[in-house]
């Protein structure tokens, strides 16, 4: 089964399924998606940042702080590309059945733009300002500061100006809607979304 020419070399689908919420057939279906994404610009079975940008924003160019963080979190080996195994690992967190602790941790690392181990006020300001700019919306500095103040008053329990992982966990448990992007309902039904896996499958779940 390993090293099959049609599949990612050295990837053990059964092991990936065992270590994730996915069945073997679902891993195979996700491989169909991975093939499409990883060959969209450079046909090398690796997802480059431009390919992730193209999939998320329908444009291969342009800076985006969110894209950088998402890509970094997928790219576990920090070698500038997303391999299939890394793709499965990251998507596992977004599965409806994934533990909420994993979703909380992943979201924290997304928002921790500078990777300091804290979500800092400047980072939140930067994210809000970026979205305002992208959306052609305007907000006075006064109102923006008011929103940030209110958010930190709720989330930053020890009032040190930054949100620790423990504070983040307590905060999102009070506001679970903040984690809604951390669950992708598509992952519950990937074999239906990518039925072409059936032409390549070698196992029956």
């Amino acid at each position: 089964r390993q090293n099959s020419p049609r599949t990612c070399q050295y990837v053990d689908l059964a092991r990936l399924a065992h270590d994730s919420p996915f069945s073997v057939n679902e891993v195979e279906a996700l491989y169909e998606l991975f093939k499409k994404l990883s060959c969209s610009i450079i046909d090398d079975m690796l997802i480059h940042k431009e390919e992730l940008r193209l999939a998320l924003f329908q444009a291969p160019y342009g800076e985006n702080i969110f894209l950088d963080r998402v890509f970094d979190l997928f790219d576990e080996k920090k070698n500038g590309v997303i391999e299939f195994e890394e793709f499965i690992h990251a998507l596992s967190v977004f599965h409806p059945n994934a533990p909420i602790e994993e979703k909380i941790d992943f979201a924290f690392r997304l928002y921790d733009l500078r990777q300091t181990g804290f979500i800092e006020r400047e980072e939140v300001q930067q994210m809000v300002a970026t979205i305002l700019m992208e959306s052609d919306m305007t907000l006075s500095d006064e109102l923006l500061n008011l929103i940030i103040d209110k958010t930190f008053a709720d989330a930053d329990s020890d009032k040190d100006g930054k949100i620790s992982k423990a504070e983040w966990k307590a905060y999102v448990l009070k506001h679970p809607s903040l984690l809604k992007n951390m669950t992708l309902p598509y992952l519950k039904d990937v074999t239906t979304a990518f039925p072409s896996f059936i032409f390549n499958t070698e196992v029956e779940d």
């Binding site: 998606l33 939140v124 994210m127 809000v128 959306s135 903040l178 992007n181």
Partner: peptide, 25 residues
């Protein structure tokens, strides 16, 4: 509606919404 900064970010940022990976594929 978006009095909470994180609510605003998670609702408005397409960058943190990975569902588009599965759309139009």
């Amino acid at each position: 509606k978006f009095f909470n900064a994180f609510e605003f970010i998670s609702s408005m940022s397409s960058g943190f919404d990975l569902s588009s990976l599965f759309e139009n594929k």
